[in-house]
Nucleic acid binder design. Structure first.
Lengths: 356, 356
DNA sequence: ATGAAAGCGCTAACAA
DNA sequence: TTGTTAGCGCTTTCAT
């Protein structure tokens, strides 16, 4: 029975009449455009203050900008995305721009719906993270709206890409294991239903690099891949499968830390121990990996830097840049306690160095 | 040097002229409003299809709805939020509404900025998750925009609340430990800078309930709280502190699973083992808790159901409901392997039942 | 430096 | 049933 008469928002007209000036004047002040006397500026600002006026984004959008950056995330479950967003937010910091996020999901339909939703809302720029859409679709989008694609490697003439060098990262991971003396190194890969070119997708690159490095070191025959997903469940399932093979691997390179956690669980479940029986290395270096009881060896890639770069590029594009740029971040290896030389029983070369 | 002439979006006028009808007709069709002949409807739909027309949300917003639900999340790091969003998305499913998210952060300033950003963008409804703002501010907001507050317990006349019964959940947790024979049960609590009434905040309720249940069972003297944060780092730090006390607790009730992971790490670090030396129970039952090597005992609360309910309530409010409703979900205990009777050395009553 | 007026794409009275 | 018209709140020429 509440009679909550919804209040009308304060508009530019209210401010104008309150300050006894034209709406044009107010508009100029809020955009701090050229051609307003200090006196007028003061009056208007006082009125804005007094009335608590805030420009209506939709109305602004009809003529020009909405001051909104749309961020398309596949999901909210990867801690890595949180870092990207932190970087972006930092970069947008004191500009008028605001980031809004939307969940793209894992199907073409849902991702498309999300992209459309962003376009319908006239965002000034789009940061699209690890999309599964085909490049042609993204280019179509990018022709209409300034776009930055994060976590894919392709080269496009109409949008920018920000990514970590997954080839280098995966190489770091596999060679770390090889240096420790492992040869039977297995990999947990991610399955998706992307329409993008495989070589542009980070998980494909990680898997391909794994194979290449294995071959480069003469371990081509030991290649073993379980393709599940970059999630705890995926890692669990994938590692179970890998551990059931005979001979079983002495090390597992999981394409993502989440999957590595699942792998750790599978090893435990099999009654084996890490790193004595099996070494495990992840990718992403998420916070939980650093906990002393987990101490997961991982590949670090600076998500904050990537988010910041994406924000900068988006802003530049909005300001008018049309040439495309590619921004790559270099990953690094963080050695913790889930990797060690293989045990004597393994078929790798016997190693005498003890785990620290 | 690319001359990417940004294409003009297809508008309702384009569709109208293409279909040789008025814009009103088109408008009616897209809203499937009353008063269009099947013939006209077909023609218009064909034109829409052909031109790939999509209504411009900002323009719609100027007259009425934007078909946008704004979701304010404190951050993206809690897996629990992902569930809420899943529920919401499911509920919004085949409506025209789209959820957009915005990060509120942990300061009043950032949260306020985020709320304003949503209001500026004329969202039709707001789902605000675990805000720190004072009730009066939220009510002010709710008077302008249909609002549902999730994860706070207050009773408001102008907005709806969706929450889990944290009192019941915390009681479940503490009594589980007491039933196992523990008496020196410590708690890891969360510190924030909220302006809300303490009794409305879930972490305060969990802490208060912990104290109450301890007293109810004659363990009032054993109350020990470390107030850090509901994060892995917070749990680590909090548990370190608790474990350094003498006599040390035989069990730790962490207010959130993330903190419980940190606690697990601290126990490990101290050279103790779970659950032999220390039992640990979390809260939220996030996915990682179920991994066999973690097997964290926790309190489950159905985030998906909460998100779904929030969506339903928001839709109802948008349709005109003005009376307020409170929706509470009942949590349940999920016993795994991080809790067991205290060891003999403890000061609790000796227990003969062995951990399973 | 200031303001009048047109118009962005849409919806909602109202007329026909 | 259909179309005409008047805005929604803002920005942007273009006069003054």
């Amino acid at each position: 029975m509440a009679t909550s008469q919804r209040r009308r928002r304060v508009t530019i007209t209210d401010v104008a009449s309150h300050a006894q000036v034209s709406t044009t004047a107010v508009s100029k002040v809020i955009r701090n455009a050229y051609g307003v006397s200090p006196a007028m500026k003061d009056r208007v600002q006082a009125a804005i203050e007094e009335l608590g006026y805030r420009p209506h984004a939709a109305a602004r959008g009809m003529r020009g900008r909405t001051f909104t950056i749309g961020v398309l995330l596949p999901d909210l479950r990867s801690p890595f995305f949180a870092e990207i967003l932190d970087g972006l937010t930092e970069q947008l910091g004191d500009t008028e721009y605001q980031a809004i996020m939307i969940q793209g999901g894992t199907t073409h339909k849902s991702e498309r719906r999300a992209i459309d939703a962003l376009a319908d809302r006239q965002v000034d720029g789009i940061l699209i993270v690890a999309p599964i859409a085909a490049k042609t679709r993204l280019e179509e989008l990018a022709r209409d709206i300034p776009t930055v694609v994060l976590a894919r490697h392709e080269r496009s003439a109409v949008y920018d890409t920000v990514f970590a060098d997954d080839d280098a990262g995966a190489q770091l991971a596999v060679e770390h294991l090889i240096d420790l003396g492992h040869r039977r190194i297995a990999h947990i890969a991610h399955q998706d239903n992307a329409r993008a070119r495989p070589a542009d997708l980070l998980h494909v690159i990680r898997a391909e690099t794994y194979k290449r490095v294995m071959r480069d070191h003469g371990c081509g025959d030991e290649i073993a891949i379980a393709t599940t997903s970059y999630s705890a469940e995926g890692g669990l399932e994938g590692a179970r499968e890998l551990l059931s093979r005979s001979p079983r691997p002495t090390a597992i390179f999981a394409g993502a830390d989440q999957a590595a956690f699942g792998a750790l669980a599978a090893v435990h479940e099999a009654g084996l121990s890490v790193p004595a029986d099996i070494s495990v290395i992840g990718y992403d270096n998420i916070r939980l990996a650093a906990l002393p009881n987990i101490a997961l060896t991982s590949i670090d890639q600076d998500g904050v830097v990537m988010g910041r770069a994406a924000g900068r590029l988006l802003l530049d594009r909005i300001e008018g840049r049309t040439s495309a740029v590619r921004f790559a971040v270099v990953p690094s290896l963080v050695v913790r306690r889930t990797t060690a030389p293989p045990s004597e029983s393994g078929q790798g070369p016997a190693s005498t160095s003890a785990p620290t």
